[in-house]
């Protein structure tokens, strides 16, 4: 490929195909961020090699060649992404909606229905047992550290602003299952 090389300045410049759009140049420059600084010029690009070891003329030529290949790959990627954006978006939107419908229509597992009276009693018993255990083990060590727990609004407190939650991901397990 034709390129201008300045070994002393560690720079190499060349022209690229005008079918390659600016976005592809930026993407290729981003990929090369570890290896070279990339400058756009009126009719091409100039690369300034980075790194501890200096490149000779062949090294700079190889760098330009690799960057040229990356430009072509990035332009193809850009075109593929642009041409397929609508179909990809449609497919993923449909998948998300289907998943949301599945979740909404999913019959509640009989085991996960509302808690029975026995289960409620069992939970109360466990809480009582835990509290008794706390008392019998004496005063727990004080929580130190630098970060005092701020006064809260209590478990399950609601925020002032209701965030958008079309898939009910913010709902607790109990709210979802109607427990």
């Amino acid at each position: 490929m034709d390129c201008d090389i300045d070994v002393k300045q560690q720079r190499v410049s060349f022209e690229y195909d005008d079918a390659i759009e600016e976005q592809a140049v930026l993407s290729a420059a981003y990929v090369f961020a570890r290896r070279a600084e990339v400058w756009t010029t009126d009719d091409g690009v100039e690369l300034e090699a980075k790194g501890d070891s200096k490149l000779d003329e062949d090294g700079l030529k190889a760098l330009a060649s690799e960057f040229s290949e990356e430009l072509i790959a990035q332009e193809l990627r850009r075109r593929i992404a642009t041409e397929n954006r609508s179909v990809r978006d449609y497919l993923i939107t449909q998948a998300l909606l289907a998943a949301a419908n599945e979740q909404g229509q999913q019959p509640a597992d009989s085991q996960l229905q509302n808690l029975s009276g026995d289960q409620e009693e069992e939970i109360q018993r466990l809480i009582q047992e835990a509290e008794t255990e706390l008392e019998t083990q004496g005063a727990p060590p004080t929580s130190g550290g630098n970060n005092a727990t701020p006064g809260g609004k209590g478990e399950g407190g609601e925020g002032q602003d209701e965030p958008l939650d079309p898939k009910a991901i913010l709902k607790s397990w109990e709210e979802k299952r109607g427990a």
């Binding site: 195909d17 079918a19 060649s65 790959a73 193809l76 992404a81 041409e83 397929n84």
Partner: peptide, 26 residues
């Protein structure tokens, strides 16, 4: 084959057969 041989493809519009693909030469 280096990407350079793909350069002629840049002159043409991407055919509609090419789906949403990601690629890497390895």
């Amino acid at each position: 084959m280096p990407e350079a041989t793909l350069e002629p493809l840049l002159k043409e519009k991407l055919p509609e057969t090419v789906g949403p693909v990601l690629f890497r030469r390895l």
